[in-house]
Design a binder for these strands. Structure first.
Lengths: 266, 266
DNA sequence: GCTTGACCCTCCCCTTACGTCAGGCCGCAG
DNA sequence: CTGCGGCCTGACGTAAGGGGAGGGTCAAGC
């Protein structure tokens, strides 16, 4: 009667190092030692080990296991209930994460049809911010405009993206010129830039009536990640996002004031 | 344009130490430093931080995040899929654990009606092995005999348990005497002890026809934790569990050979 | 009696993603 | 000039062991 560390380890499915660890921390010290100092585990030790592994599998920290096993009065039931509550919380948390991951995959998979190399070639510095895209997907996936925009984006090929990006770059240049020249955000030149942005969205993604455009503007002003898709951080200036947003609002008001607007096709 | 660590930390919901950590490991180094050596984070740094936090929330290790962000060619989609697969595995694992925990709670709650103090008083050294009891519950909860045994156990009060344990202690003394005297496991004395065990089970837990008793015997021989409930480790001898099991099998055969048996009531 | 190989021992450092000091510099208000 | 809050670096600690160095022990074969 007396097993060595190796035997116990093989038999219980743990490593020798684990048994050493449990010995050193006092969680499970073998009943005796051989004259040479070898650990000798008895049946009682094995029984205790089994208890330990049971609680360990349930994810209890070793210290708490020690408490539970220390005195049989210990409130094992309470510990178990608490543990189960936390297990359920953890499950719920992981389920939320899995959902986010799924949306992120969805965004990556359908968002752009390009290969990673093409994507890099076309987008360059403007890296696709997955965290924002995923959040946007979770926020707007029930909106028809969003779905159409994504579907059309998925349909674009490399050449489409190149043209689209060139257009956007030219627009950015004009925007920065107007902003740096001190043009007012509700002035004509800024409103014209906003209108150009609207037509850009309409042509490449989805028709963009005033209300839709206002929602876009609000998001640009509220979330730097959204604005970064429009103007890369290296070209930004303080107040630029708010400026663009204000211009879009002004342009939306102008268009509404101009009366009913038979959306002309591009 | 340039935020200090404290500002970024407050604003992004992380601690200053976290930003220091990301800086040292190279995951996120601020664009510049003030003359005095203060970290100055720019908008591009904030954008990167947001990316980092997104992947971190999904449970990616920081090193993997660094790889994903290092070059935009990186296969973010592949990483995400892999991550989601592991999230699902983890969810399944936790669900199994929650089930085990629930069974363990069930065992503790209904198994014995005593308070922790009473339980200690009555059971003393023979500590209730939750890992075995839970496994037994998962294995046998569909058996009618098991359910009856648990229900009757739950009905016993402190006095019942005391009498029951006293009976068991006397039985153990006889068992050890027979075993130490070298009585054969299939001899009359051992079979009588097995029969006594059977009547004990019948009286306190559930009627125990030969087949049921054989299953109990097999479990006693196979699982040291089961046997420990019958004979505490301190009183065990090598081969004792097998001896008891064999005696029960012999007794079952004897009873069956004796012909149909109108189970007398106790 | 000697060697070999498997097994055992005790330190001791390493891991993740930071938390928590300790000791000292920087910048601004009174 | 003194405080005070914020910043810096550096070092140690965490949970549950992993991995290895350096050295002792055991059983078997020669």
């Amino acid at each position: 009667m007396g097993y060595t560390v190796g035997q116990v380890a093989a038999f219980a499915g743990v490593t020798v190092r684990t048994l050493h660890h449990y010995d050193r921390t006092g969680l499970l010290s073998p009943g005796e030692r051989s004259p040479a100092g070898y650990r000798r585990y008895g049946d009682a030790d094995l029984a205790r080990l089994q208890q330990i592994l049971f609680y360990r599998e349930l994810g209890f920290p070793l210290e708490e296991i020690a408490v539970i096993l220390r005195d049989p009065h210990a409130d094992a039931l309470g510990h178990l209930r608490e543990r189960q509550r936390r297990l359920r919380e953890e499950i719920a948390r992981l389920e939320r994460l899995a959902e986010v991951a799924e949306q992120a995959i969805e965004v990556q998979r359908t968002g752009v049809r390009l290969s990673p190399e093409e994507r890099f070639e076309v987008f360059g510095e403007i890296s696709f911010d997955l965290s924002y895209a995923t959040e946007a997907q979770l926020k707007w996936r029930d909106s028809a405009a969003y779905r159409e925009a994504m579907a059309r984006a998925a349909g674009h090929g490399k050449e489409d993206w190149r043209r689209l990006m060139a257009e956007a770059a030219a627009w950015r240049t004009s925007l920065l010129a107007a902003f740096d020249a001190g043009e007012p955000a509700d002035g004509e030149r800024a409103m014209d830039l906003a209108e150009e942005h609207r037509r850009h969205l309409t042509r490449w993604f989805t028709p963009c009536p005033p209300d839709t455009h206002r929602r876009v503007a609000d998001d640009l002003a509220a979330d730097p990640r959204a604005f970064a898709l429009l103007v890369p951080p290296s070209q930004q200036r303080p107040g630029l996002a708010a400026y663009v947003s204000k211009a879009i609002h002004a342009n939306a008001a102008r268009r509404e004031a101009a009366g009913p607007d038979p959306e002309e096709q591009p």
